[in-house]
Write a protein that binds this DNA or RNA. Structure first.
Lengths: 205, 205
DNA sequence: CCTTAAACCGACCCGCCAGTCGGTCTGTTT
DNA sequence: AAACAGACCGACTGGCGGGTCGGTTTAAGG
């Protein structure tokens, strides 16, 4: 059964490198040969494992992107009892420059989302589903926070989630022009102000 | 001098239609022939007026996009004395579906920004400059608002501007999946909460 | 071993599209 | 009306890149 292992290994190498380069240069701006050259693999190897470039990218989304979103943006939401600081910490961490050689700058959802919008409906759908998952989790954490008295009763949790997601995607857009340190600081600062306006009137960490 | 008129007219038709289609389908996903076909012009005509596709798009940015940003996002900022409601109204209006057959959904900065990021540095620079202009104007309006006692004294106006821009770009990203009405409502609602947290403590319209 | 099927190779095909170029048509100038 | 220039035409080129396919290597099973 070593053949099977080889297969997995090669597919995994392809996906990992693919995500890295697609994220770096964009999907449409990256040719398969770009990726294949780096891995010293051939066209033949690629098409043995994937039926098309599109199919390949969908694999990447489902195997890697989904996991990363969970690990980076969903799971940390439940690390604290009070959702507002939990969300703040999560986002702050997600904007941190990549540690241990992982994908620099935490995330790429926005780039892919706009790249595929109106160009490839199927891939767009997969990406939107990921956002949806994030949103659903945000909402549930926020609602729990409302029940626990951390968030004011009149607040619309769905609206808050939408607004958080929007601001996060947007700040990631702005990250491209270098001054990430300051942008991140400003973002977190203002997010704090915003959160203070929807928190239940006692204290806000 | 009718020749000169003809030239202007053709160039203008090219730019207008170009912006429309580039915005609709993306720059790299639109071939010149796509545009030329709709205008019933030829390759020859095109290259008589512009030296490349890139040069063409830069013309579009400088002639049309800049103006639209001014008209839609900068000028309305000074329509009211209190900057926070002014900004709110401006953004709300900018998210309004296009009236009188103009470009649907107000704006496209984010799409272009991410499309050209890492693919064409020159064009990216032009786009970033536009954002910068918007930012500068936001900051100046905010600072004036602080002097006039509408905004709390400890607030960082640059940070606020960044956060506003981020959230706007982000909500525009989310607009692609259809439910714009609700998204817009949620966005404006939360923006109001945020603004209430940075306003000087009297009233907030 | 020898067979079989898998993983893998790489030359090739083909459509797409930015850009070229020789030519035509039309209005302006003298 | 002749000469010129600028607007426009459209067939063509060349490179890029996704996808194909016949062949070769490798490892599992008999």
């Amino acid at each position: 059964m070593e053949k099977n292992l080889k297969k997995r290994e090669t597919m995994h190498r392809l996906c990992a490198k693919g995500l890295e380069i697609f994220h770096e240069k964009g999907y449409y701006n990256t040719s398969l040969d770009d990726i294949l050259k780096e891995l010293e693999l051939s066209k033949g190897a690629f098409y043995h494992h994937f039926k098309s470039k599109e199919d390949y990218f969908i694999s990447i989304i489902q195997n890697l992107v989904v996991q990363k979103v969970y690990a980076l943006l969903v799971e940390p939401l439940n690390m604290q009892e009070n959702p507002l600081p939990a969300i703040l910490d999560t986002l702050q961490n997600a904007l941190e420059p990549g540690k241990r050689n992982e994908m620099a700058y935490g995330f790429m959802l926005n780039d892919f989302l706009t790249e595929f919008n109106k160009r490839n409906e199927e891939i767009s759908t997969y990406l939107k589903d990921i956002i949806k998952v994030w949103e659903v989790n945000l909402v549930s954490v926020l609602k729990r926070g409302k029940l626990d008295g951390h968030i004011a009763r009149h607040i619309d949790c769905e609206g808050v989630a939408t607004y958080i997601i929007a601001s996060y995607l947007g700040i990631r857009s702005l990250f491209m022009d270098g001054n990430t340190k300051q942008l991140k600081y400003q973002y977190v600062q203002q997010l704090r102000h915003y959160f203070s306006s929807i928190a239940e009137r006692n204290v806000m960490a």
